[in-house]
Write a protein that binds this DNA or RNA. Sequence first.
DNA 1: CTCACGACTTAGTAGAAGCGTG
DNA 2: CACGCTTCTACTAAGTCGTGAG
Length: 694
Amino acid sequence: MASTSSSSVSEPPTNSEPVPADSVQEIHPGEDEDLAAKPEVLRWWEAVPAVEKVDENVGVPKQPEVYKWWENSAGESTVTVKWKTLEHNGVLFPPPYEPLPSHVKMRYDGKELDLPPAAEEVAGFYAALIESDYTQDAGFNENFFRDWQTVLQKHPPRDGIEVTNLQLCDFRPIFEYFEAEKAKKKAMSAQEKKDMKKAIADLELTYTTCLFDGREEKVGNFRIEPAGLFRGRGEHPKRGCLKYRVQPEDVTINIGGNAPIPVPNVPGKWKEVIHDNTVTWLATWTENVNGNHKYVFLVVGSSLKAQSDMLKFEKARELKASHGHIGRIRTTYDVDLKSTVLADRQRATALCFIDKLGLRVGEEEHDADVDTVSCCSLCCVHVRLEAPNFVVFDIIGEDSIRYYNRVPVEVQVFENIRIFKENKSDEDRLFDYVKKADLNEYLQTEMKGLTATVFRTFNASSTLQRLLDENDLRSANLQEKLNAYNKASHEVAILCNHRRAVPPSRTHAQATEQNKLRSLKYDRMQLRRTLFKVDEKFRGTKEYMDNESDMNDEWTASHEEAMKTGDVENTEGLAEDGEKVSVLRDRIAEIEAAYPALEQERGTDADFKRAKLAEKIQETIGELDEEIKARKLRIIDRKEAMEIALSTSKINYFDPRITIAWCKIRDVPVEKVFSQSLRLKFAWALEVEGDWKF
DNA sequence: CTCACGACTTAGTAGAAGCGTG
DNA sequence: CACGCTTCTACTAAGTCGTGAG
């Protein structure tokens, strides 16, 4: 499957290939020293056998000898101990609200509104967003306004105005004040900025690290989340609700029994101080909007997190290792697809989706929140069948990201879906006999520690390995190598459905492309018209009927205006349009110039010339068509590429050793592929042999 | 034996930082 | 040296999964 034997791996290419001058290849000499100069990186993995060996006889993995203190001799049901000693300085609360200067007042129904600080603060949260998409959303607005009104009730405007209608609120004065403040900050000198940063760093210094079993470790999110408006994704029913300011009274501190208890940086007392060494968090509080728990943990690069990260990949590798777990599991579910027990058949089908399509397991129900779905929560509407063997998924998945996939499936899977959908309505569960817990319980029996998510890790990592192996890149330059890596990442990201919103700056570039395309279409239209004038007979022919669909009068008019003023290049970004197009444009100009002379001419000679011209026009239209088609495809391609988020799989699903080994074999500096923070996170993997395989 | 809850991982986004360029 | 674009990091929302209470 994914792995090829190491003997088939190409020799590392010699590094003598010609490299274009612009593709920077040298590693910055300071770079390595930089890493080495950071003694903070605890090399916990060195004390440890890197790979967890599996006992062949029992099939039970031995615990790796990392920090044996959390190994507990007392057997399986005992909770694990995560630390012996823990010292830290608690969390950092944001500074109290600072009222706006007295000249900054929002308006209500045209009149200035004199708000007490508490109400003004909430108005400010909204004001900051008035030019964003959030405030275009009725649900967001409704929730905000209701919560704000509650605050206003307690802290009414000092001038007695009653705020009853969001439409009458004008937050712009506050917004503009914020903008001005931002501009002021931006205009500060480099030194001032530096000083300010230093001051913040000093203030935060005591919070950034803790003593975890006596080792210094970095604390992750020690800053308490500031109050604000809840930015739930998609159609989250609570979007726009007011998230309260967190007080010491809300926060529970978890710390070693002998450690000094930190003092909050704002007035107040901790809700509680506990000494629970079975958990890894340093502090927790409950957020008011959804009642979710928030935790303060160590940073991702901490040894604690890194170890569990490594264990995750070891688990995924175990799935495919010599015992052939994955082969056996797949064979079993293939058989179970035909099981006479409906529950088994459903489970096998669900498992097939999780394995082959990378679906998440999908919780059954989370308190009527958003209706995002995944495998176990699939309803009949979400899955359509298309004969002969296609299944079409169209669902709103995690983070309200749409998952649309039309895939061919085995006959048995197709048949099963048909059966499961029988006599059910759209909103009924497709897998009504499968619960997430059952599925994971079943997986446990197949392999200890196996859960649905392991399939995602396993499939992402093994696919990456396979794709990278496909191309030895012997004669490629650095950029080509990086492109190959990104292409492989891209494919995995699609498998995992990792998507992102396209930032506005990019949509602008898209618009430029779109304009170039339209201007080509305009040329085509003009050519067609000339062709009809040269010879009426073409008017009726099918291939010249097309009216270049997306060209409306408005655009045509503005385009023609731009051409008159000679401003096409500037307004439509046509300047750097490539040689091919300029050759075509020259031809078009020739044609348009040739026609008027012919217009009044009659006789056989003229007919001949007309026929010749018509031929030339047809030819040119043909070439234009090709160019238009190519550009259309490129636009679609680029758009799709922009929507795919490559980082998520790199951070969470790719065993870093795959990438690092690839870098070594292909002679690519690791820092071209892993950013500083990823190199920190994956420090444990940076020393693998060149031919390491997932 | 459920199921709600607690803890921890996975996820997209906003904004800061970096960077080539006119 | 401001500008526009890309990349990186911080932030926090939204999942998963095991467990412990009832």
